[in-house]
Design a protein around this nucleic acid. Structure first.
Lengths: 187, 187
DNA sequence: TGTTAAGTGGAGCTTACCTCCATATATTAA
DNA sequence: TTAATATATGGAGGTAAGCTCCACTTAACA
């Protein structure tokens, strides 16, 4: 499962320094912050940063790892108390809210979430599980895919980022996705 | 309405050269192509390009002007034949399809469409008109806004760009937006 | 304590954006 | 036709960011 040879002590420490600096700067300046600035804040050379995180997405995924793990965990925990459709709603709202943690993250979500970190894998698996449960319960349309979930979260995050819609409207946007913009029974 | 002083003959010619080059290169290499390359292809200096089109979005809007005008035109033309909801569906599909004309256009749509060119104004006005008609006819939920349309088109375009979904699924995605992912009557 | 595989940092190359201004040209009035 | 001038031009050059490469350093281990 984990093929990587263990990191040397100094490398491990630097990895943590980079992650901490990245979290702070993503918060402060958004997901597009200059990676050289991250390296500087962490007190390491830019080469070290690239050695550990070959792409910006890898760094984003790493800084999101714990958050994704607990999102997935929370979703599983509340599952028995919710109807399948409501479980999907809660999952999408959580994910959309989380994606608004950093500015300018939205368009990379699709890439980030495929990075293969434990957190990414957990959140993806949970999404597939909820979707299947929704299908089986007859609550979610059969032609809806997991990718559709990702589009939706992307769309919402972009809306929030561009301040077209305030963060408080996440619920509204998720609701549109669940129920459509049409008035029910009108067509 | 048009405050701009008329362009000098040479400037007008260069503007056309730039537009033609930009259209070709946006097609070939996507909306993110280096503007210096556009200038080179047009046979003008980079300064000339910036003088005429201060931002990439302005250039994108200009190259899309005719397409937007005819989109709006077509929408108005078919309107009497369609139910309000179907008119919205056709509009969104057309717009999403058009946004897939150039790669990497998706995230700028919101900005591009506010550029104030005749095409942008026409497409925006038509969207508002369709939305209002949908509201009045009771076909579209009252809490749906024009911005929601833009999110949707953005999300679909991003999905297409990232090849998460083939171009042929535009109809499916628009349908999700109209009708929701839920099975009707399930909640 | 010597060997060596792993790790480091930052100089430096690249690419793209955008501004500025000395120079050139179309336009207009005389 | 020509002089005056507002408009337009192009590209050098400053800025910013990405990413690679490699001479040097250091942790790990026998």
């Amino acid at each position: 499962m984990n093929n990587e040879p263990a990191l040397r002590a100094d490398a491990k420490k630097n990895r943590e320094l980079i992650l901490t600096a990245a979290e702070d700067l993503f918060q402060e300046k958004g997901a597009g912050v200059a990676l050289e600035e991250v390296a500087k804040r962490a007190g390491v050379g830019i080469g070290t940063l690239y050695r550990r995180f070959p792409t910006r997405e890898a760094l984003l995924a790493a800084t999101s790892n714990e958050r994704f793990l607990s999102l997935a965990e929370n979703s599983r925990a509340r599952d028995p108390d919710l109807a399948p459709g409501d479980a999907v709603r809660a999952y999408l709202e959580d994910l959309a809210r989380d994606m608004s943690t950093y500015q300018n993250l939205a368009t990379s979500i699709g890439t980030v979430i495929q990075c293969g970190t434990p957190g990414c894998n957990a959140i993806t698996a949970e999404g597939h599980r909820l979707l299947q449960r929704g299908h089986e319960a007859g609550a979610i349309r059969r032609d809806v895919t997991y990718e559709d979930f990702i589009y939706m979260v992307t769309a919402i995050s972009i809306a929030i980022e561009n301040d077209l819609s305030p963060k408080s409207r996440i619920g509204h946007l998720v609701d549109l996705f669940l129920n459509g913009i049409s008035v029910k029974g009108s067509d």
